[in-house]
Amino acid sequence: MKFTLQRLGLLVVALAVVSVLIFAAIRVLPGDVAAVMAGMNASPARIAALRAELGLDEPLVVQYLSWLKGVVTGDFGTSMLTGQPIAAIVAGRAAVTFPLILLGLAIALVLGISLGCAAVLARRCWVRSLLQAIAVVGGAVPALWAGLLLILLLGSGTGVLSVLPTQGFPQDGWASPGRALTCLVLPALTVGIIVGASIMRYTRSALLDVETNGDVIALAMACGMTRRRAMVTVGLRLATPQLVSVVGLTFAEMITGVMVVENLFALPGIGTGLVTDIGQRDLIAVQGELLMLAAFFLVVGFAVDVAHRTLDPRLERAA
């Protein structure tokens, strides 16, 4: 409990520091923020009106405290382009991005853990070498290139098999779950194959570490288990804390990693939306979106720390 409260306190402090950095980064952009948002041909009257509307004529401390008060109450501001609440816009985009990440992560776990175990348990040297080569090549393939290959192989209308859609997302979102899920299959495969290669390497390394740096596997085999069963039932369980850390951090990194994939498959997710808002100079929306992304990264890190401590009692005893 003490560890959890300490981590929770650090999470709150980190969020406060990040909010200051994001607020300052938007304010130190070259030129006037209102002038940037209003556009190159805006009149001085329009810029002055926008400054007053956004509260940019107030002192910076007052601006920050006003924004922070809104963030605490769930009000991240209003988009200057659409007039919609930024929280609602991000929630709609998250309904595309997070299912994509979860589906891609599920594919990555199935591929990574199974092939990682196979790379350790394979008896033939050439099989182990082949699996290691697959892990290296899979992790080195750019997401854009992998997505294009999958489109050429499975894309509807353009691919060899022509079975899956390659562009867009249903207008009614998850009201049509079958169509929505089908639209995410190819992007999730793109993400899953690349991330799965990394998880495969971590799984193989963790299992070999359990086997070589202890007598647990030998003791399990002395109790009558085969090496395969000992590695899968005992070794994989002991390697779980390491894999949880890797998967948790990978999950957080995939938020920004799917940006290329979302643009390639024309998905209206967080990555695509953030790029669009930056290009259209909707800086207030960008400010809120960056804070939400940073908060997500920090919350995932907090959850990984707590889960790691729970799964590995040795950390508690060492403390």
Score class of each variant (00 low, 15 high):
Leu161Met: 14
Val61Lys: 02
Glu211Gly: 11
Val90Cys: 04
Trp126Ile: 08
Ala91Leu: 11
Ser129Glu: 09
Leu293Cys: 11
Ala140His: 08
Ala16Glu: 05
Leu283Tyr: 15
Ala206Met: 12
Ala188Gly: 10
Val304Asp: 00
Gly55Glu: 11
Asp282Tyr: 10
Leu186Val: 04
Leu236Cys: 05
Pro142Trp: 09
Leu115Glu: 01
Val127Thr: 15
Thr272Asp: 06
Val141Leu: 14
Leu103Asn: 02
Ser176Asn: 13
Gly74Ala: 14
Leu161Ala: 12
Val286Tyr: 02
Leu290Cys: 12
Val286Arg: 03
Glu316Phe: 05
Trp67Phe: 00
Ala180Ser: 14
Arg227Asp: 00
Ala222Asp: 00
Gly155Leu: 05
Val286Cys: 01
Thr190His: 06
Val246Pro: 06
Val90Trp: 13
Ile107Met: 05
Cys125His: 15
Leu60His: 08
Pro268Thr: 10
Ile270Leu: 13
Ala135Gln: 10
Thr182Cys: 06
Leu60Gly: 08
Gly39Glu: 09
Asp282Leu: 06
Leu100His: 01
Ile199Phe: 03
Val191Asp: 14
Val33Met: 11
Met231Ile: 15
Leu131Pro: 01
Leu109Arg: 11
Leu267Gln: 12
Gly196Met: 08
Thr73Val: 04
Thr256Ala: 15
Leu154Phe: 12
Leu290Pro: 02
Gly273Ala: 06
Ala52Val: 05
Ile278His: 00
Val71Pro: 09
Leu8Ser: 15
Ala143Thr: 06
Ala188Thr: 09
Leu154Gly: 06
Val120Lys: 03
Thr73Arg: 02
Leu105Glu: 10
Ala197Gly: 00
Arg124Ala: 13
Leu291Cys: 08
Asp209Asn: 03
Leu109Ile: 15
Leu283Phe: 12
Ser176Phe: 06
Leu102Met: 11
Thr272Pro: 01
Pro44Arg: 04
Gly273Arg: 03
Gln84Phe: 09
